[in-house]
Amino acid sequence: MANIVELKDINKIYGDKIQTQVLFDINVGFEEKSFSSIIGESGSGKSTMLNIVGTLDKPTSGEVFIDGNRVDTLDKESLAKLRNQTMGFIFQFHYLLPEFTAKENILMPYKINKFKVPKEIDEWADELIELVGLSKVANNLATDMSGGQQQRTAIARALINKPKIILADEPTGNLDSATTENVYSLLRDINEKYKTTFIVITHDKRIAEKTDRIIEIKDGRII
């Protein structure tokens, strides 16, 4: 199957005077509809790699391809559009907008592109709320929800634009183990149901073992 994400000879160096290289010649591809995990110690460069895939960060050298198109040379505006249309992000610290309700947060990526929400998108949002089990708190402000509920809101939000890729950086990092299990089985269900490609960073080996492929990073290199 074709690679939806491809990194070629990626190097990443931080700092001007004191230079720290965090990624060394990374060459890796992710297949469409796959569920991959990235593991590694903290500081190994796994988050940097994910951010480069997510176009949030730029490589110092090397090429990034998303869906067959080179993206590391695009301007800010095109990148914003690309992120909005093809990617969903789930972060460790949920990052919901506390001023908005769960449903409003879920609809936000759609509204960024088009403010008026048509009926079918509204229904899709309700379906997602159902899927992640938030029906009871859909109209709660983000601050009036538990950590698990917030993370499930973030997952629904990542799905609203039906992206091809979902990038998750320790999505269960600050959740208890029961909730962690729930969240991962939810992600897996979505992967199977909507054929979304998942790239997930985790430090939990048990979770990683359940994914299609494990990529281990050590000191900025894939091993």
Binding site: A80, F89, Y95, I112
Partner: peptide, 16 residues
């Protein structure tokens, strides 16, 4: 800045 960061990650344009 957190909210702005996440909005930008989700693809809001700088102008908006």
């Amino acid at each position: 800045s957190k909210q702005l960061g996440i909005l930008k990650a989700m693809g809001i344009r700088d102008r908006d």
